[in-house]
Design a protein around this nucleic acid. Structure first.
Lengths: 213, 213
DNA sequence: CTCGGGATCAGCCCGTGGGCTGAGGCCAGG
DNA sequence: CCTGGCCTCAGCCCACGGGCTGATCCCGAG
């Protein structure tokens, strides 16, 4: 079962969260009212997820997150705050948080987010996500330069390589690309020749090094 | 009720999606097998959400998305594709899509994503989100390191897996570990069984995800 | 002592992977 | 117009990969 630590300086907020999570069958194993208490509690209780408020008296949530993630603890830190400010988002993500929620989330969404965080998946509030997407889409195609020598591959070959990198068989690749397996094999052979690879295992390495998949 | 248009060139995929969405009480009001059909269908049916494959013969999903969002249609376009490639993500987001899903989503997550999209909320697959977050925070994903259950592997098996992850053949592994190839094969078979892998390509993925290699 | 798991190895079988040849269609550029 | 690259496909061949069975040895736990 998912075990959660609540960190917030307001008693009422913690009580509310505890009710919501309890109702969903999530186990709230502890509470803390500031960053310092949170760090101790994590070492003590080894929770799966830490629901971390950012603005708190004493040690704030960003600093606490840094200490927790830096300590090698298993816990995923999920920021839960009132303020939708990029400064906070960037700060706490840099500190190692796996997500950033706003306190206007519905109970259902909060529960889902905690479960995702427990599974190691990233989670962010829609409003924040929208800005991240805009930011992501705005950026220049800078990553093309960073990726090593896949430039000599054709578009189709890169697609095939990406699927190889995902662990797919030739038959599966043929299926998803809606082409025959003979064609897939041809692409594969060309990829190997161009990138100087011996077999698909090495191709997986190349694909992942290149940022495909 | 949420009204959805499916766009994919593979009949089987559309059928599967229709089943999943039907079951969740989402109304699939139409289907299209390429971008051109999609554009017409949107004008015709005025759906809430368009589930858009990207790679299709003829007009692709990115171009179709551009035309749809540019036409002033009410529909939210949600990209649903096999390829987790930044180039595609950026392309379709610039074209006006509200989200980017990968075809490895669970049925539940797909349904939730469609509902979010219908409400105008952005949605992206966890793997893509992780990169967006890293890009946003301008730093490596820190503690997001999800080291999955290699704990059940024996010491020797982990060594073999690491070598597989480096792209070595069974013969090479036998050579470097100074054991016979039969033994290597046995270890490999056990690794596959324990980690539920199908072939060494998937093993490479697992090894590198786990931080070996 | 016995049982079970890990490491080691052998032999058999066969499916997939990958090399090689050849070939047709499409499109951009010389 | 023709050359060359890319995408498409077919058929042939065989080595490696991987499943399966069965066996020996060592070890620690019960």
């Amino acid at each position: 079962m998912t075990r959660v630590l609540l960190v917030d300086d307001q008693d009422l907020v913690r009580q509310g969260l505890r009710l919501i999570l309890d109702l969903a069958g999530i186990d709230v194993v502890g509470e803390a009212r500031d960053g310092a208490q949170a760090v101790v509690a994590v070492a003590d209780l080894d929770p799966d997820v830490v629901l971390m408020d950012l603005r708190m008296p004493g040690m704030d949530g960003v600093e606490a997150t840094r200490l927790i993630t830096g300590s090698g603890a298993r816990a995923r830190v999920l920021a839960l705050t009132t303020f939708d400010v990029d400064e906070h988002v960037v700060g706490v993500l840099r500190a190692g948080a796996v997500g950033y929620l706003l306190k206007d989330v519905t109970a259902d969404d909060l529960v889902a987010a905690v479960r995702r965080a427990a599974a190691g998946e990233p989670v962010v509030a829609p409003a924040v996500l929208a800005r991240m997407m805009a930011n992501f889409a705005d950026r220049p195609p800078a990553n093309a330069a960073v990726l090593p020598g896949l430039g000599d591959l054709s578009e189709r070959e890169r697609e095939v390589l990406a699927l190889i990198g995902a662990g797919r068989s030739n038959a599966e690749i043929a299926d998803t690309l809606v082409i025959s397996m003979a064609t897939v094999k041809t692409h594969v052979r060309h990829i190997f020749a161009k990138l100087d690879l011996r077999d698909r295992a090495q191709a997986v390495v190349a694909a992942r090094d290149a940022g495909l998949s």
